[in-house]
Design a protein around this nucleic acid. Structure first.
Lengths: 254, 254
DNA sequence: TGTACATCAGTGAACGCGCGTTCACTGATGTAC
DNA sequence: TGTACATCAGTGAACGCGCGTTCACTGATGTAC
């Protein structure tokens, strides 16, 4: 066992370690100064290496940015998935609440990284397609829960597809593949898709509002109580049964 | 009449004109390259003047940024107020819908300016207190409408203050003065404040989602139909009567 | 009304800075025989 | 196992760039007598 032939050469492993160190330093720089402040030279400086050396690892600053974006998406995604996995699978909204609270707490503790992925695009930077799949982790995780809740009867959509305005029905019908939440949304009714996107919008709005100071600080300071209350109201509006919502547990305030 | 004594000197008027020209060029640069890309030298260049000349008008780059931020807030605010003013004062939610549609359409046509004021704070820049009042124009305008709707009976809050969780009640009770929506929120019940902030969060979330590509493009492309539908659902969730919502008109799609 | 002086918009050169990226190089690591 | 060669991580200097801000200046506009 211990003598297992290393599948990679020592050089390769050194390379991987350095790559990891670079992205890690870059992540800290973004956390401190924001995405626009990320510079290859600053990374090289704190790493004690020549700026040109970074080009052995990333062909350009944008490539490094892309790596950071993917990392950030994976970081929130993992955080949310973990919280959901730790929640009981009962006939309540506990798991969904766990997910959204995880989303919020990640955002609060990684404000610049939140800005990097959910804020305005970095000027001059074009996100390559590789960022799409990681971007979908969080919405996917929440969508799976919605599906279960619909199957459960924990959520009963208050309106049917036929009550959607025609243009909305048409737009929702066209969502699939990249840009939508690939694959997963199969089997969802149009009304369910609508509810999902509204819930997602509410989530992003409340979190962005807190983070970027467009909500009164008193609400933010309530330890997530207002956020919790708001998401419960959103669940009710989405058709979650009042008893299920009332029976849901919330994570302890951070 | 025509011979009225000018209250300002010719130099003063020239100064005002130049100031206006500077902010106008700066606004265009922000619109093109985003807030982080704003540079004094670029402004001076397109104006054909020496970079140092700008220091006669703004003591620093940050001061110029502040002016732009205030302008942007005033621009949305004006846009929303105008749309509301043009809406009929009836027993429906038409005015509110006009306001939120105006907010969205402003955002879509001024994406970088939206990012400037509703996105992550510009790194290294600290917003002075002068930006607070303009920032409140839009939420204030919407809040006035909510107040009227509550008085009207067009909105009947689905829950009373006593049904709010204790920490939420406490946090809402502490909102007033700067940071909240000053003055205006007097006389609003706690539940009404909660509803207002939730509605505001939903609004910001949907718009940011569209702008920053975290909503499927098909929904965005529906000419505002999905947004309209969503805001109507939010109004219902807030306690607007179904008949009032149904009777409300929406602005023509942009 | 005319003159002397003060104000101040705008110039142009310079400061010191940090940036992304290229390039020829060195020396250590890996590989094929 | 030993040697010759190829690969490639990392260096250090240089490129050309744009940035915010300062400073001594000039000349036109305004003001007080």
């Amino acid at each position: 066992m211990t003598g297992a032939v290393p599948t990679t050469t020592w050089r390769q492993r050194a390379r991987d370690a350095t790559t990891e160190e670079i992205t890690s330093v870059a992540r800290e720089l973004v956390a401190r100064d924001g995405a626009a402040g990320l510079s290859l030279r600053a990374v090289a400086r704190t790493l004690g290496m020549a700026p040109s050396a970074l080009y052995r690892y990333f062909p350009s600053r944008d490539a490094l940015l892309t790596a950071l974006i993917i990392e950030a998406y994976d970081s929130v995604g993992q955080h949310v998935e973990d919280a959901i996995a730790a929640a009981p699978r009962d006939q309540t909204c506990t798991a969904i609440l766990a997910g959204v609270h995880a989303f919020r707490s990640w955002a609060l503790s990684h404000p610049h990284e939140y800005g990097l992925i959910y804020g305005p695009p970095v000027p001059g930077y074009i996100a390559p397609a590789d960022t799409e799949a990681p971007a979908m982790r969080t919405p996917k995780a929440l969508l799976v829960l919605l599906k279960q809740a619909l199957a459960n009867g924990v959520v009963r959509l208050p309106i049917g597809d036929e009550e959607l305005p025609e243009p909305v029905r048409e737009a929702l019908g066209r969502i699939e593949g990249p840009g939508g939440i690939e694959g997963i949304e199969e089997g969802l009714s149009l009304a369910a898709k609508a509810a999902a996107h509204q819930f997602w919008g509410m989530l992003m709005g409340m979190v962005a509002g807190e983070l970027f100071c467009h909500m009164p600080p008193q609400l933010t300071a309530s330890g997530g109580a207002f956020f919790d209350f708001t998401m419960r109201r959103a669940l009710l509006a989405m058709g979650a049964t009042p008893t299920a919502v009332a029976a849901s547990a919330s994570p302890r305030p951070a």
